[in-house]
Simulated scan of single mutants.
Amino acid sequence: MRVRPAGVAATAGAVALTVALAGCSGASASEDGRSDDKGKPRTSITVNLRGTQARAGEPVRVTLAAGKLQQVTVTDSKGGKLDGKVAADGRSWTSSRKAAPGTAYAVEARDDAGGTATAQFTTAAPEKVNKLALVPGKNATVGIAQPLSIVFDHEVTNKAEVEGHLKVVTSDNTQGSWGWMEDWSGRSRVDWRPKDYFKPGTRVTLDAELNGVDSGGDGGWFVRDYTTGFTVGRQQVVKVDLDNHRLKLFRDGTQIKDVPMSAGTPGGEKGSWRGTAVLMSKEGTINMRSETVGLGDAYDKMVDSSMRLTWSGMYAHAAPWNAAYFGNANRSSGCVGMSDADAAAVYGEVQVGDPFEITGGDAKGTIALNNGYGAWNLDWAEWQKKSALR
Rank of each mutant, 00 (worst) to 15 (best):
D218N: 15
V303K: 01
A140K: 14
K68Y: 03
S77I: 09
T228V: 05
Q71S: 14
G348W: 01
S333N: 14
S44D: 10
G348N: 11
W192Y: 09
A145R: 02
V204Q: 12
E291Q: 10
Y226V: 09
D153I: 00
D172E: 13
D153M: 08
D172A: 11
S149H: 13
K282I: 06
S44Y: 14
S30Y: 01
A319P: 01
P5S: 14
P147V: 04
A388H: 11
T18F: 01
W221L: 09
A363E: 05
V336T: 08
V352G: 09
A100Q: 10
R2I: 06
D225W: 05
R2L: 13
D111Q: 06
G67R: 05
D36M: 06
G360A: 05
K131I: 01
G114R: 02
M280C: 05
A106P: 00
T103G: 10
G284N: 05
D83Y: 06
P136S: 12
L242Y: 04
S28Q: 10
D112M: 01
W180F: 08
G264V: 07
R234S: 15
T231H: 06
P260I: 00
A16Y: 03
V232T: 11
A87Y: 05
A341V: 07
T11C: 07
A388M: 08
V86W: 03
Q70D: 12
F326M: 11
L148A: 10
V3A: 15
E291T: 05
A104D: 14
T292Y: 07
V162M: 08
Y226I: 09
S290Y: 03
R189M: 14
V238R: 03
K78T: 15
K40L: 10
G51S: 14
R308P: 03
A113T: 02
V240K: 04
R2A: 13
M314Q: 13
V135R: 14
D340I: 04
P136I: 09
R34W: 03
D89Q: 09
D191W: 02
C335M: 09
K257Q: 14
R203W: 00
S77V: 09
T227C: 06
G23W: 00
T11I: 02
A316R: 01
G114T: 03
Q146I: 00
R34F: 02
G313N: 05
A27S: 11
M1L: 09
W311G: 15
D252E: 15
D243G: 09
S272A: 10
V151H: 09
R187Y: 07
A14L: 01
T46G: 08
V223I: 15
N158T: 10
V62P: 02
G212S: 08
N377I: 07
P136A: 12
